[in-house]
Design a protein around this nucleic acid. Structure first.
Lengths: 226, 226
DNA sequence: CCTACCGATCGGTAGG
DNA sequence: CCTACCGATCGGTAGG
């Protein structure tokens, strides 16, 4: 109401440990809101409120709503890329390399607090055309890593005749997990990974600790056409 | 301006052959707009204009914007279900049955003028919770058909140890095609189907007419992390 | 199915 | 980072 602007912002959601910059906080919060509500349904006021500032103040940090959407996507993609490049996949046997890629990919997608990539995947259409370029470059580097490992799997005979379409299908299978996987459900990340790898590679070796198996239940929990 | 309501509506986009009811036209047009622009970015005015009526008149046919969204999803799911049940999958050998399912699934998703399922898949979050129920019931019937065929593939030894997760991954791989497949691109529907089936079943038999192969190109055309 | 219109919301700005 | 506020848009309604 009255003007007492010197009070430091009190956010509803304090960051654990080092409190990041407000800017980082805004990006993180936006990612979460964009994921759960969608970009269009999330208002600048929502973000501001969630972070504990006034709506008008928001525009001090970002010029437009699109700016924070790119920020989310870029940061998400940059982090994923960094994580996957850190695997140093070239020094692993093809199959282990693939397993590591799948695990990392699923992890960045599916963990709570990792809202960036889901936003990237499902709000891509909300991003203005000219802003897509930067993100696309990062994506290409990301895909290159996968292509390399798949090529090696092909050489070792573990992936018969991979086509361009195979990688697309692979990503599809994995990305879909966003729709149905629940972090606190019956499957943990490692089990999910084992299942995915087995599905994608159709190896003889059955995944280690899968209790969920059974020859296809009549129905699983409610999910989207999946 | 003045009240001359007897003039039949002149739409910008005439339907070919039998002109369907305005209501059907509205649903069809909404589906297309929802797919290309997203639900939230599509205004009631957009739909009205595309169909050649006034914004206010729109509400004569549908009470709320949500009403037309469910209509799109229900009709899409009902049609898909009908198509897939028409395959009479029980009277086909497991593998052929699976092939038919995949083809039909891809077709309803990927053909131009089949915007319903993409809307269902990618605007699910925009649908009010209480409206989801009807659509979910249709989905379950749809999934049951798949489960049956997968179970038979398991029996015939063509699908090793299918888990609940396998069907989810399968749908993921197929549904992702919405993101990258272009009807007028290098792959036609049959080639796409062959590729998908081979990917999903990892058979010895290579798909018939795949020119796109080659041991994983360094990059395909620009797509989303896929 | 049209006209006229409203109430609310929303992205964004000015000025401090 | 706040206050105050605007211009536009949007879903929806009234009344015919």
């Amino acid at each position: 109401m009255s003007a007492i602007p010197l009070v430091p912002r009190k956010r509803g959601r304090p960051l654990k440990g080092e409190s990041a910059s407000l800017r980082d906080d805004l990006i993180l919060t936006s990612a979460k809101l964009f994921r759960t509500q969608g970009y269009e349904r999330t208002t600048v006021r929502d973000i501001a409120a969630a972070v504990g500032i006034q709506a008008g103040s928001w525009f001090y940090h970002f010029k437009t709503k699109q700016d924070i959407l790119v920020a989310v996507m870029e940061q998400g993609m940059a982090n994923s890329l960094a994580r996957i490049e850190a695997l140093d996949v070239d020094n692993l046997p093809a199959r282990e390399a693939f397993h590591a890629l799948v695990r990392t990919h699923l992890k960045t997608m599916v963990s709570p607090d990792h809202d960036f990539i889901p936003v990237l995947l499902y709000e891509w259409g909300s991003l203005d055309e000219d802003r897509k370029v930067t993100v696309l470059k990062l994506k290409e580097r990301y895909e290159t890593v996968w292509d390399g490992v798949i090529a090696r799997l092909h050489e070792s005979g573990e992936w018969i005749a991979p086509t361009q379409i195979d990688r697309l299908m692979t990503f599809g299978a994995l990305n879909w997990a966003v729709q149905w996987y629940r972090p606190n459900g019956p499957l943990n990340l490692d089990e999910l990974t084992d299942n995915a790898v087995q599905f994608l590679l159709r190896s003889e070796a059955a995944p280690a600790s899968v209790t969920v198996s059974a020859p296809v239940a009549k129905r699983s929990r409610k999910t989207k056409t999946g």
